[in-house]
Amino acid sequence: MRLPFHLPGLQPVVFGADEDINYVLNRPSVKCSMFLSWMERNKDPDDHLARTLTYVQFPTWYVWKTENRCWQPRKKGNTIGRIHNVAPSLGEAYFLRILLNKVKGPKSYDDIKTVNGHVHDTFRDACFALGLLDDDKEYIEAIKEANETATASYVRNLFGMMLLSNTMSRPEIVWESTWKYMTDDFIYRYSKLHRVEGLSILDDELKNYALLEIEKFLGMNSSSLRNFSTMPFPDSSSLSDLDNRLINEERTYDVLSLAEEYVNLFNMLTEEQRSVFEEIMKSVDGNTGGMFFVYGYGGTGKTFLWKTLSAALRSKREIVLNVASSGIASLLLTGGRTAHSRFRIPLNLNEDSVCHIKADSDVAKLLHQTKTYYMG
């Protein structure tokens, strides 16, 4: 006997073209599929046998009554159950099928996903907890081995082929363990393109770039990362930042040396400077925005305070723009520029003057990515 099954709320419903949809949905048969009726039978407190059987074993002891849409104890005959075959590419349905060959007497979908008293979020996680799936270590080792002799492009395609094979139990675990091997060429290529040494790219951006390349490979094979529910999907809009020369220039700082510099500068702050520093950092970390006017006569440590703030944020790979009203003053700050140069401020101002920054320009994208500004 072939045993159909379905995910929650996905049971098939047959109806005529002229039937009223409300009438169709209120039919008793909609909630009494063969699979759901099996779990209803397991709720009978007087039927101890039902709760000792798997779905496959059930037809041997019970018979399905189509007219009543229920299972009844078998009185004669012999029947062997067989669950419909499901391809691994169908995801949760595939893992549900695996569990139906193991779990006995469940009363609900949550019971099927319960292992040692813990209800797992997905059927796949339940399979993994029961030891029914491999740990994918062989795939991780294969990628590591390929990385020793092959290019990053080859490693990305190799991972794409693994996805297409539908043989990995947890592709997202393999991805998190090996994504760095798929990005070795990016920093070198962009540093050479923009002629910037020591270019630093955030991990999230590197991951996104690799995912875009994998998505291209899958697309050429009539597939997509969207077919793998646990895999992240790339954001193509953020890729343009990697082509932005201005943003790349602001990421050329050595974060390790800046971290050491920050510690040294912070320890030399006075109590008053530290109070200002913490207030500004609180606003930056909380992303609440704000404008701070730090004033004092020459030698009170205004520039020193801002050097500390710059080192603190740049050591976290954040973008800081140091600007000043004059070229000489801008030289006192690391990466300093004049305000007119950075913000495209016209030299001759009038009541109709505006900063000539287009919404989709590199400067606009730089300002959008910037964590804080300093006007000296």
Rank of each mutant, 00 (worst) to 15 (best):
M161D: 14
G105Y: 09
R97A: 06
I83F: 05
K107R: 14
L99W: 00
N147V: 08
V119W: 06
V115G: 04
G160S: 04
K144R: 13
N166Y: 15
Y154V: 13
K76V: 10
L90C: 12
K43W: 06
Y55F: 04
K107P: 05
V155C: 14
V155K: 07
V103N: 04
M39D: 01
F128A: 08
R74M: 03
N116Q: 14
M161I: 11
I80F: 11
Y109P: 06
T151K: 06
Y55D: 04
K113A: 10
D125H: 11
H120C: 09
L163C: 13
S89L: 10
L53C: 06
D121Y: 11
R97M: 06
C127L: 06
G160K: 00
E141R: 12
N42D: 02
R51A: 04
W38L: 14
E145I: 13
Y139W: 15
V56I: 15
T60N: 14
K65V: 08
G81H: 00
L163Q: 04
V115L: 01
V56C: 09
P88T: 01
V86Q: 05
R124I: 05
N68F: 06
Q72K: 15
N85P: 03
S33Q: 02
V56S: 08
T52V: 09
G77Q: 00
Y55H: 04
Y94G: 08
I140T: 13
N157E: 15
R69F: 09
W61T: 05
L99F: 00
E138L: 12
D46T: 11
A93M: 11
I83A: 01
H84V: 10
A50R: 10
E92M: 01
N68K: 15
K76F: 10
P73D: 00
V115S: 03
M39R: 00
T54I: 02
M39P: 03
G77T: 00
K76T: 12
A50V: 01
C127I: 07
W64A: 12
G131T: 02
